[in-house]
């Protein structure tokens, strides 16, 4: 895709970061407010689509690294599976970190309250893991679809020359 005009690119440079902040907020606050790993990951992956539309494909392909995205995706899925497997002494996907203290283990007061950020055990950890997987996976879909389409268009032009 060709880059759009200077106005669109400037607006993209300023406001695209707020999409990343908002998506990260949805992922991190998944156990307190509506949303979670999947929803926040979709919002962050829209950032890549926005960059592709505003700055054009040639510059985007210079910025992103597919190997890094692929590694992040696999890492997210492995963290998710590992967090499920560590509770196997009780059941699969048992919440073994809840109310144990530490980073994820605060106790929340009962009744309606504003919420404690470092509570909820493996739920917050799984939100982060699924968020990483969805961000990398959906970005990878967009980047590879664009590369495949470009390959197709190039070959069409070559075949027209013949």
């Amino acid at each position: 895709m060709n880059p759009l005009s200077l106005i669109v690119r400037t607006v993209c440079n300023v406001f695209a970061w707020f999409m990343v902040i908002f998506g990260a907020y949805i992922i991190v606050h998944g156990h307190l407010s509506p949303g979670g790993g999947f929803q926040g990951g979709a919002v962050v992956a829209t950032f890549i689509a926005f960059l592709l539309v505003a700055h054009g494909g040639k510059r985007l392909l210079g910025w992103v690294k597919e190997g890094l995205f692929s590694a992040v995706e696999s890492t997210g899925l492995l963290i998710f599976l590992g967090a499920g497997l560590f509770g196997i002494s009780t059941t699969f996907f048992y919440n073994f970190l809840a109310k144990k203290g530490g980073l994820f283990g605060s106790v929340v007061p009962l009744g309606s309250n504003t919420g404690v950020l470092n509570s909820s055990g493996t739920i917050a950890l799984m939100n982060l893991a699924v968020g990483l997987e969805v961000v990398a996976g959906l970005s990878l879909i967009i980047v590879y679809m664009f590369k495949g389409i470009r390959l197709e268009l190039d070959r069409e032009e070559e075949s027209h020359d013949r």
């Binding site: 919002v43 829209t46 689509a49 879909i141």
Partner: peptide, 15 residues
């Protein structure tokens, strides 16, 4: 609603 707005209106349109 968040998932639909992100996937349906954002990503699938781009794809």
């Amino acid at each position: 609603a968040i998932a639909e707005a992100g996937i349906g209106a954002g990503l699938s349109t781009a794809i």
